[in-house]
Design a protein around this nucleic acid. Sequence first.
DNA 1: AAGGAAAACAACCGCAACGAC
DNA 2: CGTCGTTGCGGTTGTTTTCCT
Length: 228
Amino acid sequence: MRKPCCDKQDTNKGAWSKQEDQKLIDYIRKHGEGCWRTLPQAAGLLRCGKSCRLRWINYLRPDLKRGNFAEDEEDLIIKLHALLGNRWSLIAGRLPGRTDNEVKNYWNSHLRRKLMNMGIDPNNHRLRNNQPRPESLTTSSSATVSVLKCGAHDQRPVKSRGDNCDQVSDAGSSLLEDDSCGLPDLNLDLTVNIPFSLANGEEGRKRDESNTSTELDCSPSPTLLLFR
DNA sequence: AAGGAAAACAACCGCAACGAC
DNA sequence: CGTCGTTGCGGTTGTTTTCCT
């Protein structure tokens, strides 16, 4: 049995106070990201490392955009979701200043419903049989229709990560292999945004790298430069 | 104005990948 | 090669805010 990541009796939970935020910001400014397990103690925080990491990544990082999603961001999320499924970190990696948690929440609260209202199954991006075809589609929805034409993947509950690139390739190639995909109007440039930590010259998380450059290496060639 | 419902957002939890040893 | 510790991801839950009656 693995030890818990922190001694839960001695850690705060729930919403972060401004003082806690400031401590975390100050510490990371001084020492950079990394070693989340020891960070709380070093920073004088009664939080577990996991919680610190999440707070930093999702809320305190200076490069976060926050605020409403632009229409092109919505489009991109929909397209990427059609291609990648619920791989929020990958999707967020293509949206500068957005986090996986933010994208996931936005999907669950806005986009899912939006697609459903359009008669599109948000799980597989296909039109639902018993739904009338939507009469008018917004800019965003046109993207969705493009995805539909391409026969989006079936949503699979994937739990693996190390094989991300394989799966991306699979999803991508399945799209590409699909003849019905003959109307490539999506521009799914899977060029990677350099993660914040790397961009700042800090030691990048290795998994970030695997989510980025490696993935490019694995992608079925130039290929995922689809559409538009 | 009150309160209930729905939506939006923040945070936690468990699992699995990965590297070190 | 197996085990262990750390980290990151995705699902889920909890809390707050907004909207509606």
